[in-house]
Simulated assay, not measured.
Amino acid sequence: MPPLGDLERAIMDALWAAPEPMTAREVQDALAERELATTTVLTVLGRLERKGLLARAKDGRAHRYRPKASREEHIAELMRDVLDAAPDRSAALASFLGSVPPDDRSTLRDLLG
């Protein structure tokens, strides 16, 4: 899965934070500080949908968008993609674990054990 651009990430963050699916206008309002045109929001929503990250449902004249996976599931998939690209998976994991703070190492031990 390709990494998200800055605007794609901001839109996904808004959708992940929302309690229910959002229209393009609601996404635009959530990102008001960016002063985005509705067409820009619609273009990025379409791109995210084509990437398989969003589901779209008709709601009157508009569409509502929702993430297909949680933020945590998305991050886990990115981590798997990076590991799959490593020529030496063991070395990549060892390097990663060497950089993990002690609290996270403890959490990993708990999850594995």
Rank of each mutant, 00 (worst) to 15 (best):
D84S: 13
I75P: 00
G60K: 05
Q28R: 04
A55I: 05
R34W: 08
E73H: 08
D103H: 13
R50W: 01
F96T: 14
A92N: 00
A24I: 03
D104H: 13
P67S: 13
L31Q: 00
M22P: 01
L4Q: 04
L42Y: 03
P2D: 09
D88S: 12
A17N: 08
L36F: 11
A94P: 01
S99H: 12
V44D: 00
A37T: 11
L83A: 11
K68Y: 00
E8A: 10
A18R: 01
G5Y: 04
P102C: 04
S95V: 13
P3F: 10
A94V: 12
G5D: 08
G98W: 07
R105Y: 01
T40E: 03
S95I: 11
P102R: 11
A85D: 13
T40N: 01
A85R: 14
R34H: 14
P101N: 11
A69F: 07
L54S: 02
D110V: 15
D6H: 09
R66I: 05
A37Y: 07
T39I: 06
E72S: 14
R47S: 14
G98E: 06
G5A: 08
G52Q: 02
L97A: 11
R71Q: 14
P2I: 09
R89V: 10
L108P: 09
T23Y: 02
M1E: 08
L93T: 05
L83N: 04
D110R: 15
F96Q: 05
T107W: 13
R47E: 14
D103A: 15
R64K: 14
V41G: 00
E77V: 14
A94G: 05
V82Y: 13
G60N: 03
D13R: 11
L111T: 09
S99V: 06
A92E: 05
Y65E: 03
P87H: 06
V44C: 00
L45M: 08
A91F: 02
R34S: 09
A94R: 15
L83C: 09
R61Y: 06
T23H: 02
A32F: 10
D103T: 14
T38R: 15
T40M: 06
Q28E: 06
I11V: 10
G52D: 04
R61S: 10
T107L: 15
M22A: 07
L53G: 00
R66M: 07
R89K: 15
A14S: 07
D81R: 14
L15V: 02
M79G: 12
L15S: 02
R105G: 07
G60T: 04
M12S: 07
P2W: 04
M12Y: 03
L83F: 12
R80V: 13
K51D: 09
P102M: 05
M22Q: 10
A17T: 03
H74Q: 09
A91G: 03
L97Q: 07
S99D: 10
A24N: 00
G60V: 03
G60W: 03
L83G: 11
A62R: 12
S95Y: 11
G98T: 05
A57W: 10
R50N: 09
R34V: 07
V27R: 00
S99I: 02
S95C: 11
P19H: 06
P21E: 07
M22H: 01
R105N: 05
E73S: 13
E73M: 12
M79A: 15
L54E: 01
G113C: 09
G60F: 03
S99K: 14
I75C: 05
G5N: 07
P2A: 09
D13E: 14
P67E: 08
L31C: 05
R71K: 15
L4W: 02
R9I: 02
T40C: 01
